[in-house]
């Protein structure tokens, strides 16, 4: 397969683009950090880029536009206004879109997740709202892959496997329009990751750091090519940033590598 080109999209306030790009590089892909202005023609000609030139779109974490209005709302609106149509085509062509933390919030504000009715809903149909604890939660979390096969971005993670991936966010509680929201996501196989305890069991706070309904940590769209998750796989690419690296953890790779590798493998050759 030829080189997998990854667009790591950023604006002011994005702050996880370096490790996101590095994570893709460690998985054999060719990442490029691209400012949104490079997509909207506001940059000098030699710096202009187009989303069609990439195989993967990655939205990194951070505090884009200072989290003004709502986390991810400004970045989402600016993506919509400057490259909305191209992004819709990108998603419709089944190319992978991957959002972490603020990136997940952006995907929700953009209407790309959960996107039950159309590729990009005209207004958000979910929200990532303030953590139940009322504060920023930065702590180790454990995720279980609960996807039953719909999400193409977790193909290298065995079903039911648990991964230690850290969380760091203030707004991670997934809410929908009604009470059945989480059940519908589950029925539709859109729940990809759930927060669990150390034995893989259902566990409340702090293992679920935000109080998300049904312990949901990551979801995909109905087509399975857009994945958003709150925890940060790009922060655990080697054993040295694994939460238990001094306590008997033996693998050379960190748990996050399985996820990033899956995103790279989701590119259709």
């Amino acid at each position: 397969m030829s080189e997998v080109r990854v667009c790591v999209l950023r604006i002011e306030g994005t702050n996880c683009e370096d490790e996101m790009a590095e994570a893709f590089r460690m998985c054999g892909a060719a990442p490029e950090k691209v400012h949104l202005n490079q997509m909207s023609g506001k940059a000098p000609p030699e710096l202009r880029r187009s989303i069609e030139d990439y195989d993967i779109l990655a939205l990194p974490g951070g505090f884009s536009a200072g989290d003004y209005v709502r986390a991810g709302a400004i970045f989402g609106a600016r993506i919509k206004s400057s490259m909305g149509r191209q992004l819709r085509d990108f998603v419709d062509s089944e190319k992978p879109v991957f959002g972490v933390c603020n990136g997940f919030q952006i995907l929700v504000e953009l209407g790309l997740l959960p996107a039950a009715k159309e590729t990009m809903e005209p207004s958000p149909t979910a929200a990532l709202y303030n953590n139940d604890s009322g504060r920023f939660e930065c702590r180790p979390t454990i995720l279980r892959n609960d996807s039953r096969g719909r999400c193409r971005l977790v193909s290298q993670v065995p079903s039911g496997r648990t991964l230690a991936i850290p969380s760091a966010h203030a707004e991670g509680r997934l809410l929908g329009m009604d009470e059945d929201f989480a059940d519908r996501l589950e029925d539709n196989d859109q729940v990809v990751f759930r927060y669990v305890g150390p034995e893989g069991e259902k566990a409340g706070y702090p293992w679920n750091p935000n109080g998300s309904k049904s312990d949901i940590a990551g979801i995909c769209n109905p087509a399975g090519n857009v994945l958003g998750m709150m925890p940060h796989p790009e922060r655990v690419m080697t054993r040295f940033t694994h939460a238990d690296w001094t306590r008997g953890y033996t693998s050379e790779d960190g748990d996050g590598k399985e996820i990033i590798m899956s995103v790279v493998k989701a590119v259709k050759s």
């Binding site: 504000e109 929200a127 709202y129």
Partner: peptide
């Protein structure tokens, strides 16, 4: 409000 200022879910 519909396009940016409010998220109708919350």
């Amino acid at each position: 409000c519909r396009q940016l200022l409010a998220n109708p879910v919350i």
